[in-house]
Simulated scan of single mutants.
Amino acid sequence: MAKERFDIKQHVTDTIIAQIEAGTPPWRKPWTGDVSGACLPLRHNGEAYKGINILMLWATAHVKGFSSARWMTFKQALELGGNVIKGQRATKSVFYGSIEREDENAPKGDESKRRIRFAKTNNVFNVDQIEGLPEEYYIRPEPPRDLGTEADPELEAFFASTGIEIITTEKPRAYYHPVQDHIHMPPIETFFTASGYYGTLAHEATHAACGPTRLNTQKVHANRKEYAFDELVAEIGACFLAVQLGVEPHFDQSAAYIECWLDALKSDKELIFKAAAEAQKAVDLINELAKGGDTQKAA
Rank of each mutant, 00 (worst) to 15 (best):
V247W: 06
E248K: 03
E248Q: 06
E248C: 00
E248T: 02
P249Y: 05
P249Q: 10
P249D: 04
P249E: 02
H250S: 12
H250M: 11
H250L: 08
H250A: 13
F251E: 01
F251S: 11
F251Y: 14
D252C: 02
D252V: 00
Q253W: 07
Q253P: 03
Q253C: 10
Q253D: 04
Q253A: 10
Q253N: 12
Q253Y: 05
S254P: 05
S254F: 02
S254D: 11
S254Y: 03
S254W: 01
A255S: 13
A255M: 10
A255V: 13
A256V: 12
A256T: 08
A256E: 15
A256S: 15
A256N: 11
Y257I: 04
Y257F: 15
Y257G: 09
I258N: 00
I258G: 00
E259W: 02
E259H: 11
E259C: 03
E259Y: 03
E259A: 15
E259R: 13
E259D: 14
E259M: 06
C260P: 00
C260K: 07
C260H: 15
C260I: 00
C260T: 13
W261L: 05
W261C: 04
W261D: 03
W261I: 04
L262Y: 11
D263R: 09
D263T: 11
D263V: 07
D263H: 09
A264M: 15
A264Y: 01
L265A: 04
L265R: 02
L265E: 02
K266G: 12
S267G: 14
S267K: 15
S267E: 15
S267H: 14
D268Y: 11
D268A: 08
D268R: 10
K269G: 12
K269S: 11
K269V: 02
K269P: 05
E270H: 14
E270W: 07
E270L: 04
E270Q: 15
E270F: 13
L271E: 12
L271Q: 12
L271D: 02
L271C: 13
I272D: 02
I272T: 03
I272L: 04
I272E: 04
F273I: 00
F273H: 08
K274A: 14
K274P: 05
K274M: 13
K274W: 10
K274F: 12
K274L: 13
K274D: 12
A275P: 13
A275G: 13
A276N: 11
A276S: 15
A276M: 07
A276G: 14
A277G: 14
A277F: 12
A277Y: 07
